[in-house]
Each structure stands twice: as C-alpha cells, then as structure tokens.
Amino acid sequence: MRQSVSRDRTIETLVVSAKMAGAAAAAWILASELLSMTQPFLAPYAAVFLIGVTISRSLRSAAEQIATVTVGVLVAALVVRVIGEPSVALAVSVFIGALVGRWSKFGTSGIWIPVTALLMVTYGSASDPVALLDRVIELAVGAAVGVAVNALAAPPLYWRESQHAVQSVSSAAGSLLRDVARGLDLEPDRSAVDERSSQWRARSDAVRVEVRRAQAALIWTDESTRGNLRRSAVPTRVSHRWWKATVGAIDASWTECGEFVDAAAVGLDPIAPFHVLEDDVRVAGAGFVRALADVVECRCDAHRTQADVVDRIAAAEEALAELVHTAVASEQESAGATMSAGRLVGPATAALRALT
C-alpha cells in the first residue's frame, strides 16, 4: 500500500507541476500579448497560486485574492495621496494594510493587503490610477486562468487519500481484533500476557488516531468532488458515502470495542476482584471478536455489497448470542470469574449495536 501511495503522490505532483506551468504561461500570454499590459507579474502569480487545491477552494481563494489585492491597491493610493514622503507612506501603508488584513473575511489571504500596498509604493505606482487598475486586472486575469485550468485540466479528486485512510483503519482495527481473538483462543500464558495486554491497549488507541485521519481525508475528498467534472467523480461519491458511514460507525463503536479489548486483557491477566476467564467463555469471546473483525473489514471494503455486510452482521449476532449464552449458562468457579465474563459481554453487545 505504501508503494501505491508513493506512486499516486508522484503522479499527482507531476500533474500539478504541469498545470502550474501551463497556467502561468497562459496567464502571462493573455495579459501581456492580448491585453498589452507591461510586466503583468501578478497574472501568472495568481494563476499558479490557485493550482493544486480543490475546485471550490480555488474559487474561494480567487475571490479572496482579488479582494485583498484591490484593498491593498486602494490603501497604497490613499496613503500616497495623503502622505507625500515615500518612506513614511511605505510604513503607514504597510501598517494600515496589516490591520485591515486581519479581518477574518479575508481568510489566509489577508497578508497580501500590506504586501500589495508595499509593492505599489516601492514601485512608484501608487500615484498612477492606470497602473493601479492594471494590477487589479492582472490579478483577475490570472485568477480566472488558474481557476479554469484547475477545473478543466485533470481537476483534483482526492479519493485515493480516503481509500488509503479507510484501508489503514481496516488494517489497524481488524488486525487488533483478530489478535485479541487469537489471544482468547489460547490458554493464558502468564509470561507473555502482560506484554500482549499492554500492546492491545496501545493499538486500540492507535485505531482512534487512524479513524481521525480517515475522517479528515473524507472531508477533503468530499470537498474535491464539488463541481468536479471528471467522470470518476460519480463512483467516488458512491464510495465516499460508503466510507463515511463506515468510519462513522467505527468511531461510534470504538469506545465499546476498546472496552472489550480491555476486558479480554483483564480476563487473561486478571487483577482483583476479577479472575481468569473460564475456557468456554474465553473461546466464545474469541469467536465473537473474530466475527466483529469480519464486520469491520467488510464495511471498510467499498467493493463489498450491502448483502455482504448483512451476512457478516448476522454471523456476528450469532457469535454474540453464543457468547451471552455461554457466559450465563457456564458454571463459573468463582464470583471473580463471573465478573470477568460479565465485563466481556457488556461492551460486546454495545460494540456490535454501534457498529451496525
């Protein structure tokens, strides 16, 4: 999977680089040749700046860029008109531009207000209305070219990030649950159970981290599909809905899954007042957690059908019923063993309900 991710990122880097080069050249030619502007450096700058983000974000960034440059130009023009001394005008325009740029409506583009004002004053253009208007037009041209190139030439569609993130959740959660099942299947080995239990808890926390990463990737993928003209955006939206529901279910169920893992660890290496799980309860618990892993892995696979998931859930419900029956019917040797069995059954029921 790492090789696939690396290859995808390399291809994406090449595509973005090519789009930046094409957008910069197109913006420069349009501004300098067709519109006959002298040194229209803002046009290719704006075009390049808007490449490599989602279409909706490039539109928002274009609006912010045009707004901030326009405000920066106006700040420079007003300050120079009031203050004739260039050095003082430079300081005042940057000061005012920085204050205005802090307005939240400008977003992260607010920094360009003082920068634009600085450039206009130092270039000596702040007192020339035609030159100031040209700067705004240049930026608008570049922004238009950048948005057009980004939307029409291999528009970004960040679905592989979600695919890999969901696969990581499946791998982390599934492998942990299967390892817990193997641990419950075996006779408790006191020499190894301490280390294994601490590893289970650490890995359970790691699953939560993978879930958060997957949720962030899904948000990014969702944004990239808005207004996207690529045909592959349609199946991506279907997979995205599947993955979003899956990751949400795993997130909702993982508190109980973590409690089940912890209960299994205590059942194998008990602390007072708990005792070691009885063999029949331990084996039934292994069967359930293995079925739970099947549900998680099946839900994370976008190639599986709803019928596949239903089958896995039905199998997990049968395994849960067997665990509950075994825990209730088994003749526990001690109250501590009964407590260990009860602690295993409680989160098992809640985990499966939340996951399904």
Rank of each mutant, 00 (worst) to 15 (best):
M37Q: 06
D134E: 14
V141I: 12
A91W: 12
D134V: 06
V266W: 09
S32G: 05
T246E: 11
R212I: 07
W220I: 12
A327L: 02
R230A: 08
E331I: 03
E12W: 10
V289L: 05
P44Q: 07
L139C: 08
D251G: 14
T349K: 13
D128Q: 10
L352M: 15
V234Y: 03
E195M: 02
L42F: 09
K19N: 02
S197W: 05
M1V: 07
E33A: 10
Q306L: 13
A351S: 05
S330F: 14
N150I: 02
A91R: 11
A192E: 14
Q306S: 13
A67Y: 07
N150D: 08
R135D: 05
E256R: 03
L14F: 04
V82E: 01
D279N: 12
G97Y: 01
V295G: 13
L344A: 04
D251P: 13
R212W: 00
G110Y: 06
V309K: 00
M339C: 04
A31T: 09
S171H: 07
I250N: 03
P114Y: 04
A348K: 00
A46R: 14
A319H: 01
T108C: 01
D179P: 06
V209Q: 15
G267H: 10
I219L: 09
W103T: 09
C257V: 06
V310E: 04
L50G: 01
V283A: 13
A284S: 01
A47T: 04
I113M: 04
L186Q: 15
T349Y: 11
A154I: 15
A98V: 05
L90G: 03
S32P: 02
E259I: 05
G183R: 11
E223I: 10
R102W: 02
V69R: 06
G107H: 03
H240G: 01
H240P: 05
L59I: 11
L34Q: 14
P270C: 00
A151C: 06
T122C: 02
T13S: 07
A264D: 12
R241T: 12
A263E: 00
A252I: 08
L74M: 14
S175Y: 07
L42I: 05
A47W: 04
P273F: 00
D194V: 14
A314P: 00
S162C: 06
S109P: 06
H325P: 07
L90V: 03
G267A: 06
S330D: 12
Q65W: 04
H164T: 08
S168Q: 09
V69I: 14
L292E: 10
G107Q: 10
E85N: 01
V169H: 06
V345T: 00
D301G: 09
L176C: 08
R135N: 03
A43H: 05
S168E: 08
R226D: 04
V94L: 02
R213G: 13
P129L: 08
E85K: 05
L355C: 08
A293M: 10
F95E: 00
F274D: 13
D301F: 02
E256M: 09
V296C: 07
P347L: 12
S109V: 06
A181N: 15
T38A: 14
A284Y: 00
A337V: 08
C257D: 10
A337R: 02
W242N: 15
K19M: 03
F95N: 00
